[in-house]
């Protein structure tokens, strides 16, 4: 399983000299195995994907965790959606009131967009998921709702080469001081449990979180503790706050390493990184 991080910034694309190292594109991760490609979220990082180069199967699956703008803003610029020869499947969380197509349609319509959802010319299929399990090519995928404002899922992707879990927007400590150590009471723990790689929200410092409780994100400390409780083997911290410069992220990471001693490796996610499981 080849995992490419095309966007690891949170909330809004942030391009300036001080974000050059960790990157400024919002959430988008490419997962490839046996020529089959999954795209996790469609933040601005999706514009870096070039399917004409590497698409063996003529199908692309976009798995959205939720519909906040930083996770879908790249869709309008995703060329395969406008190619009649391409089969595109979009997967996203179900809600009780409105269909996924209707909710995506709010973005794909004026005044936010010059065209409508119905104007997409690819061979499109939309799938609504909840606490679900499904298969795409060599991947078995489990989705589950996690704590974040609005309907939001995380994904556990299993193939013969390993288990990769993706929970980019997540506030498991909501309403608590710290995480519940009984993982039955820990949001998303069934997705993360013993994963070979977990890519998890770590937007805030503990200081940031004091005034941003309920905004749907984790502190770096909670993210690492979450990985420890769920026994993951490798953790990458992502959804970097747009106000955090490279220097600040470096300092946060150094402090985190100094304060904690976990038996698994963890790092700050860097845009452009390729990981092989």
């Amino acid at each position: 399983m080849k995992i490419t991080l095309w966007g690891v910034r949170g909330s809004i694309p942030t391009f300036n000299p001080s974000t050059r190292v960790y990157g400024g594109n919002t959430s988008c991760i490419e997962v490839e195995e046996d020529g089959c490609i999954l795209v996790l979220d469609a933040g601005s990082g999706i514009t870096n994907l070039n399917f004409s180069d590497n698409l063996e199967c003529n199908r692309i699956d976009i798995l959205l965790t939720h519909l906040h703008i930083d996770h879908i803003q790249g869709l309008s610029f995703f060329k395969p959606l406008f190619d009649p020869d391409k089969k595109v499947h979009i997967w996203g969380p179900r809600t009780h009131a409105h269909s996924l197509i209707a909710r995506l349609g709010r973005y794909f319509s004026p005044p936010l967009s010059p065209f409508y959802f119905r104007d997409l010319t690819c061979q499109l299929e939309v799938h609504e998921i909840e606490n679900s399990s499904f298969e795409i090519g060599p991947f078995t995928i489990q989705s589950a709702y996690v704590i974040h404002p609005g309907p939001t899922v995380g994904y556990r992707i299993t193939s013969r080469s390993g288990v990769f879990t993706y929970i980019p927007d997540h506030e498991p400590a909501l309403g608590r001081s710290g995480l519940n150590h009984d993982i039955r009471w820990l949001s998303g723990s069934e997705l993360a449990f013993e994963a070979d790689l977990l890519l998890h929200d770590a937007q805030y410092t503990a200081e940031d979180y004091k005034v941003k409780q309920g905004w749907g994100h984790s502190t770096m400390e909670d993210a690492v503790a979450y990985a420890s409780l769920t026994k993951v083997k490798h953790l990458l911290l992502m959804h970097h706050d747009p106000t955090h410069s490279d220097a600040q992220l470096d300092a946060c990471y150094a402090q985190l390493k100094e304060k904690t001693s976990y038996p698994f490796p963890f790092e700050m996610a860097v845009e452009g990184t390729v990981i092989e499981l």
Binding site: A144, I147, G175, R176, R184, W185, L186, S187
Partner: peptide
Amino acid sequence: MAYPIEIILNRQLADCL
């Protein structure tokens, strides 16, 4: 196996009440 998110959120609310 984790409890459904709706159960977990109800507990986290109850903890605050």
